[in-house]
Design a protein around this nucleic acid. Structure first.
Lengths: 130, 130
DNA sequence: CAGCATCCAGCTTGATACTG
DNA sequence: CAGTATCAAGCTGGATGCTG
């Protein structure tokens, strides 16, 4: 059944369905999670700044993403009880570490896109045109 | 000018909506993509082996995932024209490099799950119970 | 400004059945 | 074994409207 849990006897394994790390990973690597972490890694931002920076995100998704990241302890929410309200979001130390690794992965992939696109061209030429 | 515009001048940026790296990243970090890369990083596997290893994946999703990764040049498909057919999947060198970074991220997060779970508990206690 | 609640279109996904 | 085809269901996510 779960031979996988055997060969990787890690405390929390994404390979285990019921493991909470699966969820956190998805918050981190999901489209909006990744972009949000990327944006906040450069500095703290307010809600609407973030919304502009992470272009294409809706209020709902940004709000949802921020809640998930905050709940996971990756983002800190600083609300000032002023009027109009001002809320700043920033990464926690852990959030920064996660963001660094994520950005590393992203930049690695971006740096190989030529190779990837070439592979795609080849794949499409061999598979499609036959 | 904001840095996003700069980003868009860079070769391939996930921050640009229309950039193909966004797609590749999603193949890599998506649930099945990540698990598939993780499984294959330990060695080549046949279709049904993979299916058993990546527990919970349906034929359709595995097939789809494999195609996407193969098309991106991360997975190599080795089909033998025997009967019954035998097909082996293995990571390409690039696939291994991507997998390593991805696994690094995953293990980092897994290693901090105690912190994350504690953050969740705190968040739920402060937000939920009011 | 900073959000939450609601609705619903559509994409993703999983089951099932079938092919080579 | 190694897939493809099809279809229904469910979840994702965007648009809209409203609150403090």
């Amino acid at each position: 059944m779960d031979e996988r849990t055997e060969d990787q006897n890690l405390p929390y394994s994404v390979f285990a369905k019921a493991c909470p790390s699966r969820g956190t990973l998805e918050h981190v690597t999901g489209r909006w999670g990744a972009l949000t972490l990327g944006a906040l890694h450069e500095g703290s931002l307010r809600f609407n700044e973030l919304r502009r920076r992470v272009d294409g995100v809706s209020e709902k998704m940004l709000s949802q993403t921020l809640h998930a990241l905050e709940r996971d302890g990756l983002v800190h929410r600083e609300a000032q009880p002023t009027n109009p309200p001002r809320v700043d979001y920033e990464l926690t130390p852990l959030g920064h570490e996660v963001a660094e690794r994520l950005i590393g992965l992203i930049q690695f992939v971006e740096g190989r896109m030529d190779y990837v696109l070439e592979a795609r061209r080849h794949y499409d030429a061999t598979r499609g045109a036959r």
